[in-house]
C-alpha cells in the first residue's frame, strides 16, 4: 500500500476536471470544469451551481466517492485516482470532512450515536464538546432521539455537528443549510467557521445561490 500519511494536506488541485456525463456547453461555460484550479488550506471557496451543473458530483469527486470524470484531482502531489482504499480512509478520517446534501446518517441510530461513531474514529482534541454544539444549534433535546424520527432540519444539524468532530484540512459542504431557518443558518455558519479556523482548514461550500453570510474569499460559478 502506498504510504499516504502526511501531517497536513496543503492543497487540492483540479486539473482539467470534467464529468463524463455533462454536456459540452455546460463544461465550456463553467469556471471550474476543464480548468486548472488550486484550493489552499484556510481558503474559503464558494461554489455557485444551479441544478444540473454537477455540483453534488464535484463534491463526490473531491471526496473520492466517484470516478466518472476526465482530468485529475490531486491531494498535494497525489492523484486521488491512485489512492488505495486505506489511503482514502486515512484522508477522510484526518484531512477532509464533509456535509452531504443527502446527509447520510444512520437513520436507525440516535443523533448522539451518529456523532460519536465519527468522533470515535479520530477525535479532534480542541473541538467544542458535542453538547455545546448541540446547544448552539438547538438540538440538545434531540441527541438521544433516533435520527429517522428527527425532522430534516434537525438531521441536517446532526450532520453538521458530526462533520466537526474530526481533524480536517478541507471541509466540503453540499447545500448544508437547505432546511434550516435564517437564525440557525447564521449560528451553523458561525460554528463551522470557528471550528475550521481552529484547524486552519479550507471551507468549500457548494450551493444553488450565493450565501451572503459566508465570507468567501473566492466565488466560482460551476
Amino acid at each position: 500500500m502506498a504510504a499516504f500519511y502526511y501531517t497536513a494536506m496543503q492543497k487540492i488541485i483540479l486539473q482539467q476536471l470534467a464529468p463524463l456525463f455533462l454536456e459540452k456547453e455546460k463544461v465550456a461555460q463553467s469556471e471550474i470544469w476543464n480548468k486548472e484550479i488550486v484550493i489552499n488550506t484556510s481558503q474559503k471557496l464558494q461554489l455557485i451551481a444551479p441544478s444540473g451543473s454537477g455540483k453534488t458530483s464535484l463534491i463526490h469527486f473531491l471526496y473520492g466517492l466517484r470516478k466518472d470524470y476526465t482530468g485529475q484531482i490531486l491531494f498535494d502531489e497525489n492523484k486521488i485516482s491512485n489512492l488505495s482504499a486505506e489511503a482514502l480512509a486515512e484522508t477522510r478520517s484526518s484531512h477532509i470532512s464533509i456535509i452531504f446534501q443527502d446527509l447520510r446518517l444512520f437513520l436507525e441510530h440516535t443523533a448522539k450515536e451518529n456523532i460519536e461513531i465519527k468522533k470515535a474514529l479520530n477525535p479532534f482534541a480542541s473541538a467544542m464538546p458535542v453538547e455545546e454544539m448541540a446547544k448552539i444549534l438547538g438540538i440538545t433535546s434531540k441527541l438521544h432521539q433516533v435520527a429517522k424520527t428527527c425532522s430534516y432540519g434537525e438531521q441536517q444539524r446532526i450532520a453538521i455537528i458530526r462533520a466537526l468532530q474530526q481533524p480536517f484540512d478541507f471541509l466540503l459542504m453540499d447545500e448544508p443549510f437547505s432546511h434550516l431557518d435564517e437564525s440557525n443558518r447564521h449560528k451553523a455558519m458561525e460554528l463551522i467557521e470557528t471550528e475550521a479556523a481552529k484547524r486552519n482548514a479550507a471551507i468549500i461550500l457548494a450551493d444553488l445561490k450565493a450565501i451572503e453570510y459566508f465570507k468567501a474569499d473566492n466565488i466560482l460559478h460551476l
Binding site: 482504499a85 480512509a89 477522510r92 447520510r104 474514529l121 479520530n122
Partner: peptide, 15 residues
C-alpha cells in the same frame, strides 16, 4: 448500508 456508510465516514476497510 451501515458498513458502506462507515467506509464513507473514513473507517478503513482493512481495520
Amino acid at each position: 448500508d451501515n458498513l458502506q456508510l462507515l467506509l464513507t465516514l473514513g473507517y478503513s476497510p482493512k481495520w
